[in-house]
Amino acid sequence: MNIFRLAGDVSHLVAILILLMKIWRSKSCAGISGRSQVLFALVFTTRYLDLFTVYISAYNTVMKVVFLALSYATVYLIYMRFRNSYDSENDTFRVEFLLIPVIGLSFLENYAFTPLEILWTFSIFLESVAIMPQLFMITKTGEAESITTHYLFFLGLYRALYIANWVWRYHTEGFYDQIAIVSGVVQTIFYCDFFYLYVTRGEEIRTPS
């Protein structure tokens, strides 16, 4: 554990909590892509199956359970509790265009051809593209509420901090995880355009039409 990793995890948690609190308090999920949130729930589910097989640390276990619970709570709020406010007309990104290549890649490129390793790899690849339905929705409607942009900022910051963590770990422990690093860099690149808008235009984002 190093400061970049810890800051990354905190940033990830903050992002998820911002989104959940926004939906809970406003009793609305307008402008939020339910499809992205389902993909993130799938990411956590397939990655954290090792909860049942290996014990790493109390921190690791608690965080995994928290991320799983929060991601399912978010999906529940969008599709059940506040489904009347769900903007399904603008949440139209075809997720099979992400899922099919990601499933294929996780079978081709993995650390071991075992169910758990393939699912872990699948989750890493899927996470890198899971935000695309949300970004697509913002492009389609041409706007995002400021609280939604804070969510995206912390979500992007999380993987960027993990890159610093990987550099740190390589230098101090000689540890590197090629699949996670490549996917993490790809994931962060997807946020660069958004980071630029966030910084230059302020919180509320309107894309040029």
């Binding site: 790493i56 540890f175 995880d177 090629q178």
Partner: peptide
């Protein structure tokens, strides 16, 4: 992965 340790990152 670089070693056989479990995936310790989140």
């Amino acid at each position: 992965k670089a070693d056989e340790a479990a995936h310790d990152e989140l």
